[in-house]
Design a protein around this nucleic acid. Structure first.
Lengths: 96, 96
DNA sequence: CTAGAAATTACCGTAAACGGTAAGGCATCT
DNA sequence: AGATGCCTTACCGTTTACGGTAATTTCTAG
C-alpha cells in the first residue's frame, strides 16, 4: 500500500536530508560513514523510496548535526494541528 | 547494536504516544483501529521495544491528531540544536 | 573522447517490523 | 468465586529495512 500521504512524507524527509547534506558539502559516502548507514541505503532514503526506521533517521540527523524534528516538519502541512485539538472529536462509532 | 541513545529515543517516543493516548481517553485497541496499526504492535511501540518505521509513526501521530514532530522533541534533549551549527566541524580525517 | 567521481539501481543475506491470533497477567467489577 | 476490560507477551507468516557488494548510470571535468 504505502498509501499516498506516506509516499509524500518519505519524499519530503528525503529531500530535507539531501538538502542538508549538500549544504554541508558532503557526499553520500561521507554521510554514510558519519552516520553508519551505508551509501545505497542512504540513496534510497534521500529519494524517498525507503520507509526508514526511527533510529536510522536519528543517526542521520545526528550525523548532520540536526535535531530529529528538523527532518520532519509536519507531513503535508495540511493538518491544523497547531490548535488545542480539543478533548473530543473521534469517530469510533462503527468501530465499537 | 541498537546502541543506547537509540533505546532511550524509542522509550521517550513511546511514552509520548501513551501519554497522549491516555489523555485522549483511548484504549490500545481503539488507537489501533484509528491508526490501523494493531494492538500488540502498538504496545511494543509504546513500551519502546520496537524500532518503529517513519510511516507507522506518522499514522499514529495522525490518529492522535498530533504533528509528527510532537512525538520526537530531540532525543535526550542534550543537543543545543537551536544554534547555527556552523558550516564546518566534521572530522572525516581518518575516513577519506 | 576518456577518466574519474558521485549517485542510482540491482542483487544477496540477515534481521526486524508488521498483521493476526492466542495466551497470559492484573486489576476492577457484580 | 467468576467475569470483564486492558495490557502484555509469545508465537507465526509475510514484508521490508539494512549491510555489503557490484553493476549501471550520470555528470563533470581534463
Amino acid at each position: 500500500m504505502t498509501s499516498e500521504p506516506d509516499a509524500q512524507l518519505l519524499t519530503e524527509v528525503g529531500q530535507r536530508i539531501r538538502a542538508r547534506r549538500v549544504a554541508e558539502g558532503l557526499t553520500l559516502d561521507q554521510l554514510a560513514r558519519l552516520s553508519g548507514i551505508n551509501g545505497p541505503a542512504l540513496s534510497l532514503i534521500e529519494t524517498g523510496k525507503r520507509d526508514v526506521r526511527l533510529t536510522t533517521l536519528a543517526r542521520i540527523a545526528a550525523a548532520l548535526r540536526l535535531p530529529l524534528e528538523a527532518l520532519l516538519a509536519a507531513g503535508t502541512g495540511d493538518r491544523e494541528a497547531g490548535s488545542p485539538i480539543a478533548g473530543e472529536g473521534y469517530d469510533l462509532k462503527g468501530f465499537l
